[in-house]
């Protein structure tokens, strides 16, 4: 009963925040509403027995996406974008009413169809549960990601790399001031805070990676937590934008994709099906490489710079 009440509150909160994201006059406020929306979504994943998703949504959906949105906002302002101009002028009723009508119609259709869907026996998920032992990990989501649907995960890394390459391709010239200036870098407490938070983010990332085999966690959640540490270093001016990508950074960016492909191909050379990871050690090896690549790509996307170096 309490669970049901909580579901109701969560659902109302999610709908309210979604409405606010669309309706807030101020764009900044809309972004904040969206970030909180992500946090409530993360709670609802926990309610829906998807703790892996709850972690991913909190770290990636709300955390990294929020940081990306806010830093873009800040950059737009630094380039002389007038925040007052970005206040949404109320759209005309002739636009609002038909789109609201069409959207509500779609809601009814989606809801109706979803309610009619029969429960299918013998889904891929049941098969995954039955054959989970063959993969070598006991967390079913990690098993599916790296055991049964490894292609998805490999190509997901390719998408992440492509996003970074694309972002580099459209940002033509290098701007040294690409990162917002370190506003509080000289406050002594910042150093103390960083020396505490950054090691913890590394520790949590490695824990999530290690736990991912048997409990909620994995390379994606861990990578996002590690990236959060990197974002913090950028924000406090400990890391600076560099004019080009160093060799080490290039290696880090492609590490996940290349280790995954290499292990997958070696398996094929040994006579097995491609990408069928042989046991838990291979899964942890691939996940470690994925974690490094994910974290580095996300930090570089946040910094919107070719590379990063230690601030002098």
């Amino acid at each position: 009963m309490i669970g049901l009440a909580m579901d109701c509150v969560l659902a109302l909160g999610i709908v309210f925040l979604a409405v606010q994201t669309v309706r807030s006059r101020s764009l900044f406020q809309a972004m904040l509403m969206f970030i909180v929306f992500g946090l409530l979504m993360s709670l609802s994943w926990a309610r829906l027995h998807a703790p892996d998703l709850a972690l991913a949504e909190a770290a990636i959906g709300a955390g990294i996406t929020g940081a990306l949105l806010l830093v873009t906002w800040r950059r737009l302002q630094a380039e002389g974008h007038d925040p007052v101009e970005s206040e949404q002028s109320a759209p005309s009723m002739w636009l609002t009413l038909p789109t609201a009508g069409a959207a509500s119609l779609l809601v009814v259709i989606i809801g109706w169809v979803a309610l009619q869907l029969p429960a299918v026996p013998g889904t891929a998920g049941e098969l995954a549960w039955q054959r989970l032992e063959e993969v070598g990990v006991s967390n079913p989501v990690t098993g599916v990601l790296l055991g049964f649907r490894a292609y998805d995960t490999l190509l997901e890394m390719a998408v992440l790399l492509a996003a970074w390459l694309g972002a580099r391709a459209v940002a033509t010239e290098f701007r040294p001031g690409a990162l917002p200036g370190p506003a509080h870098a000289e406050v002594p407490l910042v150093g103390a805070l960083l020396s505490l938070v950054v090691p913890i983010s590394i520790l949590v990332a490695v824990y999530l990676l290690q736990a991912g085999g048997s409990a909620p966690g994995g390379a994606f959640q861990g990578g996002a937590v590690l990236a959060a540490g990197g974002v913090l270093l950028c924000l406090t001016g400990r890391l600076e934008a560099a004019a080009d990508t160093s060799g080490l950074e290039r290696l880090g960016l492609i590490l996940g994709l290349s280790v995954f492909s290499l292990v997958g191909l070696l398996v094929m050379a040994g006579g097995g099906p491609m990408l069928a990871l042989p046991g838990a050690w291979a899964i942890y090896l691939v996940e470690t490489a994925l974690l490094v690549s994910i974290a580095l790509t996300l930090v570089l996307l946040f910094a919107a710079a070719p590379g990063l170096r230690r601030a002098s």
Partner: peptide, 21 residues
Amino acid sequence: PDPVPQAMVLTGIVIAVSATA
């Protein structure tokens, strides 16, 4: 719970952040 949609949504979340970036 079915792990396959969970894995797909996890992939989806990462793709969404890539596309947004």
